[in-house]
Write a protein that binds this DNA or RNA. Structure first.
Lengths: 110, 110
DNA sequence: ACGATAGGCAACGACACGGTTGCGTTTCCC
DNA sequence: GGGAAACGCAACCGTGTCGTTGCCTATCGT
């Protein structure tokens, strides 16, 4: 399953989760290492707490983030392994492109 | 500008363009090397030609693809350079995560 | 025990998205 | 020249998304 055709559903959800500026900002905040609460994440935004909550749910659904309830607050942590799937897909696509160019070059030179 | 905070708008558009199964399938088709017409791309799909056209416009807006009008048909070609931006963003994010873990480790060990 | 803080749930509105149908225009080919 | 192929444009529809507001529950601190 190294060709880009195989298994399109999962990477699409991942890319879709990354395809929003607000969500990318959250990823940037969380990739700093700290596990942060919803209140902490929505404090320096013009968004409502519920808006941030929804985005976090989307990101959790895509595997980008993991939540852990501690006391009265729920902390969200970044999951860097989730990016491996995206990177693998990008590499598969550009690898297929590179191979295609290589085959074309060999064909022309023969 | 190597931190993930800088310039969030452009990669978000790129990821959003990749965040759709139909569009990912088109990328897979086009990454095979050949420059294909809209009719060719929509022939082996259950979608209408106009649906494929809209997806191609979105992908072109994100820089994923380039169009070239030849005769009565317009050919679309994959642009692998577009993926570099996405890969750079992923690397920046996971790099920031890795550095944060490293700093934490050093702090704990001191 | 009580106020304040953190959060979950649900409804709602505005708008974008994915897709279709219909029609007109250009280009190819016989 | 005329039919057919390839495309563009615009309107339209159903659904999803983004964000809000309102309200209710749980937990913390004093």
């Amino acid at each position: 399953m190294s060709n880009p055709e195989g298994g399109i559903g999962e990477p699409a959800k991942l890319f879709a989760a990354l395809g929003d500026p607000t969500r990318l900002a959250l990823v940037a905040r969380l990739s700093a290492g700290e596990s942060l609460s919803i209140a902490a994440l929505s404090s320096d935004t013009r968004l409502t707490r519920q808006a941030v909550t929804k985005h976090l749910h989307v990101m959790q659904e895509a595997g980008l983030v993991a939540s852990e309830r501690v006391g009265r607050e729920s902390r969200y942590a970044f999951r860097p392994e989730a990016l491996d799937g995206a990177r693998a897909y990008l590499d598969a696509v550009s690898g297929q492109w590179r191979d295609a160019l290589h085959r074309l070059k060999r064909f022309v030179e023969e």
